[in-house]
Amino acid sequence: MSEGGHGQGLVKGLAVTLKTMVRPAQTQQYPDVAPELPPRSRGVIALLEENCTVCMLCARECPDWCIYIDSHKEEVVVPGAARPRQRNVLDRFDIDFSLCMYCGICVEVCPFDALYWSPEFEYSEYDIRDLLHDKQHLGQWMATVPPPPAHDPHGEASKEETTAARRAAAPGAARGAPAGPAVRRERPARPAPEPGGAEA
């Protein structure tokens, strides 16, 4: 038993607790005082229904399969077009927040910005089934989504801007640029097998 060492430790322990006591407490008085969350904290996922094309990427990428999507096809007759266009109409878009693990992959993969993170987090329910938010419910969260941050003036210009600038500068070179047309060409290719899949 080394007495000196013991005594030092004992005094240190007392000092730590005393110091902690005179410092303000860490406790957050949550229901009384709203917590100060970062503006882009991930509370709930909001759906901007108009942007959704029922591409099913989110549902497919979701690690725990908590997004349920139903849709049907609709023909849209465009005056002046050779044949009526087909359009996917969203019937059902549910996210089961009792399964969701808030990874945000669906928001990441959505190619048309139909899904957003909202900082709202107070949507607990007494019944677990009520945690299945349908598209109306998900749409309501859109109001709480903060506006996108302003573009960093020192940052790189956005892709749209550079592309537009490039096209404006050299109309001939635009065709050779791989980024724009390559994506364009692929996009019609993807829905092509879908009619077959949807009918089956």
Binding site: T17, L18, T20, M21, A25, T27
Partner: peptide, 13 residues
């Protein structure tokens, strides 16, 4: 109260 504050809490409120 003392125990709470020594542990960085508030205790009963």
């Amino acid at each position: 109260k003392v125990m709470a504050h020594m542990q960085g809490r508030l205790g009963p409120m």
